[in-house]
């Protein structure tokens, strides 16, 4: 049995080396209507706060992608990707700094097309979008009976990406890109409890989550 696992591990490692690996960093603009409503309700209902809570709009992220196969001539390749994004909303008021933190983890499947003879490419991906939403007040996590108040969610993300490659050096490339993604997204009932300390006030427990992303990726090995 040990030999079997060793063989599997070796072949996987060998396979990864033979495949194309890409890592990237990006800025993402987020739009989730229900979260907006919850935060806007929070701001509207609290005139005693001079600085409103910003919407969860801006996020930064990193990603890693593995492409299968080593045939550089193929126009279509496929692979798997794991992305992580972090968004934060901070309102600093007198004696009261309220911070919302959103973590998004997105494992998915990617298809990559070369566009003509040029260095442009397009990608389509489907992913599972998972999230964790947390709140801090004056640097302390908000807790209920010593349990942190937090909310989780899950959705299916469809994403289209466009970019181009600049060889750097000859066998690697730098790939600036833009992408757009949409996820119908279910969030746990206590999301509103994190965002505006109540429940059911802003309606349903799902939202459409729109992502617009711009970033750059570094590909080890020519696709």
């Amino acid at each position: 049995m040990k030999r079997f696992f060793l063989a599997i591990t070796c072949s996987l490692c060998f396979g990864v080396v033979a495949q194309k690996v890409r890592v990237g960093a990006s800025y993402t603009y987020l739009y989730a209507g229900q979260w907006d409503k919850a935060i806007q309700t929070y701001n509207f209902s609290r005139p005693f706060l001079t600085k409103p809570q910003p919407l969860l709009i801006h996020s930064a992220g990193v990603s890693g992608t593995y492409f299968f196969g080593d045939d550089n001539e193929k126009m279509l390749k496929h692979g798997i990707r794991l992305s992580y994004n972090y968004a934060r909303s901070t309102a600093e008021n007198t004696n009261f700094t309220n911070i919302l933190q959103l973590h998004l983890l997105t494992p998915g499947y990617v298809m990559h097309w070369k566009i003509g003879e040029k260095a442009l490419y397009a990608e389509a991906s489907v992913s599972v979008l998972t999230s964790g939403l947390f709140r801090q007040v004056n640097s302390e996590p908000v807790s209920d009976d010593d349990t942190p108040v937090r909310a989780f969610g899950i959705g299916g993300l469809i994403e289209a990406e466009f970019g181009y490659r600049k060889l750097f050096p000859a066998k690697n490339s730098i790939d600036p890109f833009v992408s757009v993604g949409y996820a119908p997204y279910l969030f746990s009932r206590n999301s509103e409890a994190v965002l505006n300390q109540t429940s059911g006030l802003t309606g349903r427990n799902w939202t459409g989550l729109l992502q617009l992303k711009v970033g750059v990726q570094f590909t080890f090995g020519v696709l």
Binding site: Y27, Y29, Y31, L55, I57, F162, V178
Partner: peptide, 21 residues
């Protein structure tokens, strides 16, 4: 690509999020 990417958020900010509650 960069201009396009950078403009998208501001376009959405002005159009999609006008209706602040």
């Amino acid at each position: 690509v960069s201009i396009g990417g950078l403009l998208l958020p501001s376009i959405l900010t002005t159009n999609c999020r006008k209706e602040q509650l």
